[in-house]
Design a protein around this nucleic acid. Structure first.
Length: 801
DNA sequence: GAAGTGTGTCATCAT
DNA sequence: GGATGATGACACACT
């Protein structure tokens, strides 16, 4: 998180410096406080930035209702407000206000030019909805990607349409300003960027021929009368003419608008248009602006009420509540949270964080409602002329195809704030604002964009900056995967090797055993057999040695002689595990504790005198006992209980055989010897306990393996999740590109259509729609779907053009 | 001396 | 029904 903070903080500072260097003053305060709550939260600290649910709660809280005085959220609220105020004050001290609004005006004319001359998708299809399959009306909503906020789509369309309607006027005025038909450098640059973008999308270069564009632009320049019509159309657009097929009748204009769209969308578009008008009044197109490249930011949803007088500049109020956030926004957040969780896995990277922030930025920028989600007051006015996000954050946009497409300014407010998306219009503003010079490299930190200086000279993806950011994040995810894989492999390598070595589950670090449990058991048995102590009790099967209690009596007597000390008994634990037999028993190959007490004491002392038996208290005890006891008694103390019992009962064979012999051989062995009931019972107990001991060891080993496997499974799942998220982002990007292409094609086709009199079809009245046979129809927008179905033959045009 | 760990053992169940 | 394996539970030793 600290990295993320640092990254964004430094990025903002750098960006602010850059803007100041080129003459633009930026108000970060507005940016932080109003435009991009997630970014603000990230910079300020993790508050609600990672708890989507808390956003809603806090949002309600900040609204002043829905919170109980004793609610725990209250503290969080005050804390958030306090921190926010502190940061705001800090920003005010360092960053002045900006006056970017002037740029917006000129952008309007540029948008007009680009929209008309470049045949770019000023008429938004919104997910390609402009081209509808008549026979499949449902396809259009499906293409909308399940957006939960179609209002924005509608707004975009309306805004775009308004822009398109204004286009001739803008052209005219720009023509009067320029005095010729030559495109300005900004126009050329914009076109060039668009061309590169579409080239990446597969469009031919001839489509983007400047002369052709210019010619088309001239052809499409309407007459004054047409301008008048355009104004009327503009009004209708403003009131919510939908470019899409789904429409309902608007209460004011009588035109059809989408049913699922609330009136807010219309309001937004109207506000936008009003904004443009205000801009026109403030900064006539014919006048030389004091700013190099005025830009219109149609993506900014400005309500009528929130548009102040133009003398104060454009007071944009992007926090206008437009539509509910997309339904998948929360899911996107969850995905981001998942990535952040992955980041917590010791993968230091800033790129994923950047993308995460991009998401938040997107949320705050493209959807003002999101502001509420992050606990910001929606009523907070923007006192600055232009907020920083309008110029800078687009660089971080994930809306790749739209970044460098000026035409998309009009459609930049995409309703569905898909994951990692930013307002495309913002980036467009940047692009246009700076004379179509690709400032991505400028905005990009050098360590992120190594080719920043070459962006303008190299073919660009629709959104190099965003692409870079996203790819950085994706790379980080990949690195994460690698790190996880490598980390896991390294951490688990030895264990995996052990597991591969033996499935018996009894890998007990045999390799580290300085001495394999060789003949300890035999030595113990022999020692026991030769032990005078055992001889003392070996006679009687009369002991009735069938129960441990009885054996205990024997042991007690043993203790009377040598004293039973459990500590010593451990020295001969596993003594029955004769290595020679282990080798013959594959399941026991791995059974090898690092218990050197399995060695015969004599050999152990001779070969490894420094080993276990000479360590710790045992050494002291042993030294002490060695002074008091004969060596054989000492050896006997190193035997296990069962071994001592066996010695006491004079069992004629070793415990090792008792335990490890196959049942048939075991039975034969018992048959060979005449054994008392007590001896037989002891032998069976020894066998049972010995096998159970091994079973217990196996069981524990399996438990450990299970735990290890579960841990590995968790890591694998996390890795898969990261991979799927990466794929998802790639899919989103691909879909976005396809939509962009669709919009471009639609615009390309539509702008070339002419009626019988050679006039272009006003986009406010007509739209292109697919038919089942693959042909494209141009349909009046007022027609309902049913009517369209009944009149599919109207004005059919061949798409080939 | 408490807590954690490793190990052996027993009881129980399943095969 | 006995042998065997698996496993939970417990006790003990050790750190």
């Amino acid at each position: 998180m600290l990295y993320l903070k640092k990254y964004f903080t430094e990025g903002l500072i750098q960006f602010t410096i850059l803007l100041s260097l080129i003459g633009v003053r930026v108000d970060v305060d507005t940016y932080l406080s109003n435009q991009l709550p997630p970014l603000r939260e990230i910079i300020l600290g993790s508050s609600s930035a990672y708890t989507q649910t808390q956003f809603h709660n806090l949002r309600n809280t900040l609204d002043g209702y829905g919170i109980h005085p004793k609610c725990v959220d209250l503290d969080r609220f005050f804390t958030t407000q306090r921190l926010l105020n502190q940061v705001r004050q800090l920003d005010r001290l360092s960053v002045p206000s900006t006056e970017l609004n002037t740029w917006l005006v000129h952008r309007d004319s540029e948008t007009v030019v680009s929209a008309s001359s470049q045949s770019s998708p000023s008429i938004t299809l919104d997910n390609g909805a402009g081209l509808e399959d008549i026979n499949n009306p449902d396809a259009t909503p499906a293409m909308r990607g399940g957006s939960g906020a179609p209002e924005s789509t509608y707004n975009l369309n309306a805004a775009d349409g308004s822009l398109g309607a204004v286009a001739p006027e803008g052209n005219q005025e720009q023509g009067s300003r320029d005095g010729n038909d030559d495109l300005t450098k900004e126009d050329i640059d914009l076109i060039d960027i668009l061309w590169r973008q579409d080239i990446d999308l597969g469009a031919g270069r001839e489509v983007f021929n400047y002369s052709n564009r210019q010619k088309d632009s001239e052809e499409e320049k309407p007459s004054p009368q047409e301008n008048k019509d355009s104004s009327e159309e503009q009004e209708s657009w403003r009131n919510g003419v939908n470019l899409q097929g789904e429409q309902r009748v608007d209460g004011e204009t009588g035109e059809s608008i989408p049913e699922q769209l609330p009136s807010l969308g219309s309001q937004t578009s109207l506000s936008l248009q009003e904004c443009l008008r205000l801009l026109e009044a403030t900064f006539p197109f014919g006048e030389e602006s004091e700013f190099p490249a005025p830009v219109v930011t149609p993506e900014i949803a400005v309500s009528n009420e929130e548009v102040p007088s133009t003398s104060q500049g454009l007071h944009l109020a992007p926090q206008l509540p437009t539509a509910e956030p997309p339904l998948d926004l929360e899911q996107q957040w969850q995905d981001i949270m998942a990535i952040m969780e992955l980041q917590a896995m010791e993968v230091n990277s800033t790129s994923p964080q950047t993308n995460s922030s991009n998401v938040t930025i997107t949320s705050g920028t493209t959807e003002s409602n999101t502001v509420g989600n992050f606990g910001l007051s929606r009523s907070t006015p923007i006192n600055q002329d232009v907020s920083l996000h309008q110029a800078s954050l687009p660089s971080c946009s994930q809306d790749f195809p739209q970044i460098f497409n000026p035409q998309l300014d009009s459609v930049s407010i995409t309703p569905r704030t898909t994951m990692l998306r930013l307002s495309s219009s913002n980036s467009t503003n940047i692009n246009s604002t700076f004379g179509a010079t690709n400032l991505t490299g400028i905005f990009l930190p050098s360590h992120i964009n190594s080719s920043s200086n070459n962006i303008t000279s190299t073919p660009l993806l629709p959104d190099p900056f965003s692409t870079l950011l996203e790819e950085c994040m994706l790379d980080e995810i990949s690195l994460l995967d690698l790190a996880m894989e490598e980390g896991f492999s390294q951490a688990q390598a030895s264990q995996l090797e052990d597991e591969l070595d033996s499935d018996s589950g009894l890998s007990l670090d045999s390799s580290h055993s300085p001495a394999s449990p060789s003949s300890s058991e035999t030595s113990c048995s022999s020692a026991a057999s030769s032990s005078s102590t055992s001889a003392t009790f070996s006679e009687e099967g009369a002991v009735g040695y069938s129960t441990d209690s009885e054996v205990a009596a024997v042991e007690t007597e043993e203790g009377a002689v040598g004293g039973y000390q459990p500590g010593y008994s451990k020295l001969c634990r596993m003594s029955y595990q004769d290595p020679s037999q282990f080798h013959s028993l594959p399941q026991l190959d791995s059974i090898s504790h690092n218990h050197t007490y399995n060695l015969p004491l004599s050999s152990a002392f001779s070969e490894h005198p420094e080993l276990p038996i000479s360590t710790g208290k045992k050494t002291v005890r042993e030294k002490h006992n060695s002074k008091l006891q004969p060596p054989q008694e000492l050896l006997d103390k190193h035997s296990s209980r069962d071994e001592r019992r066996a010695r006491a009962m004079k069992i004629p064979f070793s415990n090792d055989k008792i335990i490890n012999l196959p049942v048939e051989e075991f039975n034969e062995l018992l048959a060979k010897h005449h054994l008392s009931e007590g001896q037989l019972a002891l032998i069976r107990d020894i066998r049972r306990r010995g096998k159970n001991k091994l079973a217990a060891q196996n069981c524990r080993k399996r438990k450990l393996d299970t735990i290890t496997n579960l841990e590995q499974g968790v890591q694998d799942l996390r890795r898969d999740k990261a991979r799927l998220l990466k794929e998802k982002m790639e899919f989103i990007r691909s879909i976005r590109q396809m939509k962009q292409k669709m919009q471009s094609l639609y615009q390309e086709v539509f702008t070339q259509l002419r009626d019988e009199e050679g006039r272009p079809y006003p986009p406010s009245e007509y739209s292109l729609q697919y038919s089942a046979d693959g042909s494209v129809l141009i349909m009046p927008r007022g027609m309902t779907t049913a009517e369209q179905n009944h009149k599919p033959e109207k004005k059919q045009k061949d798409k080939k053009k």
